[in-house]
Structure formats: structure tokens, C-alpha cells
Amino acid sequence: MLEAIESGLVMGSIYALLALAINIIYSTTGIINFAHAELVMLGAMFSLAIIVNSGAPIIPGLIIACALVGVVALVLYYATIKPFGDRLGNSLGWLMTTLGAGIIFKNIAQLIWGTQPRAFPSIGGESLKTVLGIKILPHDLWVLVITLAIALFIMALFDKTVLGSAIRATAHSHNTTRLMGISAEKIILVCFLMSGIVAGIAGNLIAPITFAGAQMTSTIGLKGFGAAIIGGIGNSKGAFVGGLLLGILEAVSMLYVTPGYKDAIAFFIMIAVISIKPGGIFGVAYETKV
């Protein structure tokens, strides 16, 4: 059981990273970025190309890879969100366009890097460490630590800095924020950049677990949405907790059900949460004036 929880925490951290990034964009624009999973995948593939294939040193290589994903996220904004202008909230068009972008990213990656999954080096080597009586891979430990660090960073950014304050303000109302002299669009661009960078980091953390390849994040991406919803979309704390919770629930249920159903269970939980309390764990359900 303890092992299950440990591996659940690791996957849960990944889901939490995905949910956090999805949430940053959702809270300021009201849209869910359906290309997010592909951004994560690109993070891993860029690292593969830059570090493994071209032999660049690890740390600068990682930074460049993640920064590149951030840039791709900006391109994503201009191609799939900006064209809607003020009409963004009127339809689900953004869903289709981000979905389309994701499909394009995935298939271009497939063209460039082929369909065979590749091995991806993990952090910290292969020897098991012992923590709290359970054997754990150094990589898993790093996943937990890095996720926690990023989550804390984001929460600190949102709560304690002026930029974070401006981001939260944009999430509440674009027009009122503009009245402060703040360009809502610039804030959204910053959010896309951040979301892309976090996606890149997540990609590098997942790849050693799942192998790197164009298809690596297809299902994980959807679970990221699920985690965000379970925790309460629009809420960073919710995203973090939702991710961990989903990971643990999934891992524990594996003790009782065939592993192949893992994904089905995760989605079932997501559907259940949407049906019962769409606001998620930390969401607030209140009646709004029509």
C-alpha cells in the first residue's frame, strides 16, 4: 500500500504540474488549453534533441528546451486564441482550435522524431534510495521536490508579487484591469509563457518514466484536465491538491483492479466530480446574477 501511495504521489505530482499550468491559462482567459499535453511532450523532445542528440550540457540545455516550449505556447496563443478577440467566450471555438494545434504539434513531432519511443535519462541515476522505509528512485524524489518547488513558486508569485496580483486581477475582469493601466493581453501572454515553461519542465520529468515519443502525453494530458477539475478549476491550490489526489486514487485503485483500467478509472473520477460538484474540491458554488 505504501508503495502504491508513493508511486501515486509521483504520478500525482506530474498531474499537479499539468493542472497548475492549465489553471494559469484558464483563470486568466476562461479557456482550457487542449494543446497542453503536446506542449509537455515538446518539452521532452526538445531536451532530447538539444542534450541527448546534440550533446549540450544538461542545465543550459534544459533551460533552452523549456524556454522554447514557452515560445511555442506564445505562438499557440496568437494562432488559436487571439483570433477570437472579444468573441472568445461566445462559443467553444477555442476548444477546437487548441485541439487542432495539439494534433498538429503531435504529428509534426512524429514526423521529426518518428513513432518509436526513445529512452530518456532520468535524474540522479538508477540506485534506489530508502526514504521512510520504502525504496524510491532518485528521479521520483526529484519529481516530488521539483513539483513542490514550482507549486510554491507559483503560489508565492500570485500572492506576494505585483505581477501575480495583476494576473489575479486579469482573471477576475479584463476590463477593470485595463482601467489600472495594465494591458490584459500582456498579462495573458505572460501566463501562456509560464504555462509553456512549466509544461516543458513536466515533460522532462515524465519522459524517464514513460519513454519519450510523440504519443507520450496523449492520455496523461487528459488526466491533467481531470486533476484541474477535481481540485477546482481556476484555483492553484486546487490544481495542486487535485493532481496529487488523482495520482493517489489511481495508484491505490490499481491494487484492486487490472492495471489496464487505470486510465478508465481516472476519467470516471473526473466525470463523477463534474456531475456532482463541477466546481471541484476547492471550487465555490454560488449563484450569479444573470
Binding site: 467553444l92 487528459l222 484536465f225 476519467f267 463541477p278
Partner: peptide, 20 residues
């Protein structure tokens, strides 16, 4: 988007059940 996510989830669940 909630609606879309439910339908996506449904599709994936069906797919997994068909395999498993």
C-alpha cells in the same frame, strides 16, 4: 468545456474497456 470533457472521458473509458 465540462460537457466536452465528459464526452472525451466517456470515449476514453469505452476505448479502454474494449481493450481490457
Amino acid at each position: 468545456h465540462y460537457l466536452a470533457l465528459i464526452t472525451i472521458g466517456f470515449g476514453v473509458i469505452v476505448e479502454k474497456i474494449l481493450i481490457e
